[in-house]
Simulated scan of single mutants.
Amino acid sequence: MSQVPETLHYAESHEWVQDNGDGTVTVGISDHAQESLGDVVFVELPEVGQALAKGDEFGVIESVKAASDLYAPISGEVVEVNEDLEDAPESVNESPYEDGWIMKVRIDGDIEGLMDADAYQASIETDA
C-alpha cells in the first residue's frame, strides 16, 4: 500500500505539493506514482526561472517501463530544481517525499483545488 503523507496536497496527475510556508512549495511525485512507474532511470527537470501554469507539462520521468509527462499541480515560477536527480534518479523510488523531490516553485495564488491526503487515497484506491 502506498504512503500518503497527511501534511501534503495532491494533484490528480499524482504530483504532491508541500507548502514551505514562505510563498514557495516543493513538488514531487507520489509513492503511488513511483510504484506504478517502476525503477526510475531519468528525470527531465524544468529550468529555474520557468513560469508554469497549473496543468502545464514541466518535465518527463522515465522508468524501465515507460516515460510519463510531469504536470504542474500549481501555477508559479520554478525557483529551484533537485539537481541530485541527474546522478541519482532512483531517489524518486527510494524516497519520493524527501530526497526524490523534483522542484520548488514560488506560487502565484494558493494551493486550493488540490486534494488532501484522504481524497487522494480514495482516488488511488478507485484506480486500482
Rank of each mutant, 00 (worst) to 15 (best):
V79F: 06
N82R: 02
E44W: 01
L52V: 02
G28R: 07
N93Q: 08
W101H: 10
A11Y: 01
G28Q: 09
E98G: 11
E6I: 10
T24F: 11
D19T: 02
K104C: 02
E62N: 08
H9C: 05
Q18C: 02
D84W: 00
A122Y: 02
A66W: 04
F42A: 14
F42L: 14
P96Y: 07
V43F: 04
V105P: 08
Q50G: 00
V60C: 08
E112K: 13
D19L: 06
N93H: 03
E12K: 15
A66N: 04
W101F: 10
V92K: 03
E62Y: 01
P96T: 10
M103Q: 03
H32C: 10
V64S: 10
A33Q: 07
S95W: 02
V78G: 05
L114G: 06
N82H: 05
T24N: 13
D22N: 15
V60S: 09
E125Y: 01
V27R: 04
L114F: 09
E44N: 11
G109R: 04
S91F: 11
A11F: 01
V78F: 10
W16E: 03
K65S: 10
M103Y: 02
V40F: 00
A72W: 03
Y120R: 12
S123K: 14
E90D: 15
G100H: 04
A119V: 02
A53Q: 14
V105Q: 12
V81F: 03
I61S: 05
V92L: 10
K54D: 04
V4K: 11
S36N: 11
L45R: 05
G38L: 08
E35M: 13
I111Q: 11
V48I: 14
S2M: 10
I124F: 13
D69C: 06
E6T: 14
